[in-house]
């Protein structure tokens, strides 16, 4: 297994973080957060991958067939996607509320909460 998938996962996480840091738009920031999370999908799948292996579906698999990729990380990725969907939906709803109440979704124009 080459290092490339791990580098790609790290790159995606860092790209997402960079997006959040420089964001001028809260919707953009929330989407960048999803990008960060996508890095963890890639990382998980890369960990379970094996060259020459097939999908971990056991119902029609002959007893001594090809090896399968690790199903545990795939289950984790699915759970991760569900968690991510929840978080993104809630944060987008909050961003909509910010737009309604403050009239802007530019973080630079939101006043500090520190009184």
């Amino acid at each position: 297994m080459s290092h490339l998938p791990y580098l790609a996962a790290g790159w995606i996480v860092i790209a997402g973080l960079y997006g959040v840091v420089t964001s001028r738009d809260l919707i953009h920031a929330v989407v960048c957060l999803s990008v960060t999370q996508s890095g963890t999908y890639v990382l998980l799948l890369a960990i379970g991958y094996r060259y020459g292996a097939t999908a971990p579906v056991f119902s029609d698999r002959p007893p001594h067939g090809r090896p399968v990729t690790d199903p545990v990380v795939q289950a984790m990725t699915l759970t991760d996607i569900v968690v991510g969907a929840t978080v993104t939906a809630l944060l987008l709803a909050l961003a909509v509320q910010v737009a309604k109440r403050r009239g802007t979704i530019d973080p630079d124009e939101l006043r500090s909460l520190e009184s």
């Binding site: 996480v13 959040v20 957060l33 960990i47 909050l94 961003a95 509320q97 910010v98 403050r102």
Partner: peptide, 28 residues
């Protein structure tokens, strides 16, 4: 309906989620 409330919740959500995803990467 409070502007500062949704702003605070959004900050909380984004920072906390970034942290949680890094935790997941560590677990992986």
């Amino acid at each position: 309906e409070e502007p500062s409330t949704v702003h605070g919740a959004l900050n909380f959500g984004i920072i906390q989620s970034i942290g949680a995803y890094l935790t997941l990467a560590g677990i992986a």
